[in-house]
Amino acid sequence: MTKVAKGTWVEIERILLKPEERAPNLPEETRKCSYVLRISGFLQADAEIGAEVTVKSLIGHEHKGVLKVVNPSYGHSFGTTVPELLTIGSEGK
């Protein structure tokens, strides 16, 4: 396993509520899942992926959880082109 160095920007995950601890009246498909938190922060001590760690968030608050991602990034995009949109509004040209 590779060590992730203290101070690295990482994402952790923590189960907040197990299925049996969740709110009443949830639809079946939701009730069978745990309620999960993901949060990014700076790793507070060297650790390996999968370990219980502490991070410090952008506002300096500490959170505990399982180390999941190193240098988490935003991959959202404009998506693959939807050709149906291309011709809208150019009919008269």
Binding site: L16, A23, I39, G41, L58, I59, S77
Partner: peptide
Amino acid sequence: QPEIVEKSRACEAYGAEVQRLSVGPELFYQ
């Protein structure tokens, strides 16, 4: 959901701590 992922990004861009949660009304509990 891509639109909400963009919202996470925007909040972090303005320096906020973003707690990303799975589906459920327990957002209020948190």
